[in-house]
Simulated scan of single mutants.
Amino acid sequence: MYLFGASGHAKVICDILDKSGISVKGFIEDDPEKKELWSVPVVGTTDAYNSEWQPCLISIGNNAIRKKIAERIRIRYERAIHPDAVIARTARIDEGTVVMAGVVINPDTSIGRHVILNTRCSIDHDCHIGDFVHVAPGSTLCGGITVGEGTMIGAGATILPNITIGKWAVIGGGAVVTKDVPDGVTVVGCPAKRTNKQKNDE
């Protein structure tokens, strides 16, 4: 496996892959200061991507950067799923997605492309998680929730049932979301309240 990105997020993915019996052969990294991670070499940059560097996974936590790489380098990406994750038989997980230790995904939930489901987060039944979303450690999504593309759900956040969260929104750490959140909006607190406005609202 080759990984795009050689930082802290990559360390966690390396550990997941190791536990799954998959070795990391090299990193694709644009920071010239980074030469290796855990004795595994940086083999090149995204601009110099070589089709021989497959299979691949994007190991970068920033949602926008993951999308940029996925759109620039259009290949079939792998997944990384920790063996201690609990995943319902009817759940669907798309390419490029990472599922970390202690994650629970309940029945009839769909997880999009290049999503990060971080340590001990819980996704209940009938949820739909869009592409490039990051659900941070310890977050709880109740049943019937929709999360739009690129949204960041902060550590320890709770989202109540049947809520819709728009694209590229930010849910603050520890927030309790009790109503729908529009595209591009940041909400924080308990109950979660909006802290910024969309450009169209100004």
Rank of each mutant, 00 (worst) to 15 (best):
G173F: 08
P32M: 04
A80R: 10
D183H: 06
L117W: 14
H134R: 05
V115T: 12
I153G: 05
A155E: 14
K34I: 15
W38A: 12
Q54Y: 03
A70E: 12
I69A: 06
P161N: 11
A136R: 03
V187I: 09
G130S: 04
G184W: 13
I65E: 09
R79S: 07
P182Y: 07
A64Q: 07
V104F: 15
I60R: 10
D84S: 15
T158Q: 13
W168F: 09
K19T: 00
W53V: 02
A101W: 06
E36T: 00
I116W: 08
L37R: 11
A6Y: 09
N200M: 05
F27N: 03
T109K: 00
G61A: 09
H82I: 01
E52A: 05
P41T: 02
V42D: 09
A101H: 08
D180F: 02
H134E: 11
H134G: 01
V12C: 07
E36K: 08
A157H: 10
N162F: 13
K35V: 00
A192M: 04
C14Q: 13
G61H: 12
D31L: 06
I58K: 08
V12L: 14
R76F: 03
N200P: 14
W53R: 10
S20H: 03
G184S: 03
D124E: 15
L37H: 06
S51H: 04
G8P: 10
L117R: 14
A175K: 06
G138V: 06
I111Q: 14
A70M: 05
D124P: 02
P137M: 08
A169Y: 04
I60F: 05
T178C: 00
E33S: 08
K34Y: 05
E149I: 00
T195I: 13
C142R: 01
R89M: 04
P107F: 01
R120E: 15
L160S: 05
R76L: 07
E202N: 07
L17V: 02
D131R: 00
V98Q: 04
T195F: 00
D183E: 06
G184M: 05
G21M: 11
G5T: 11
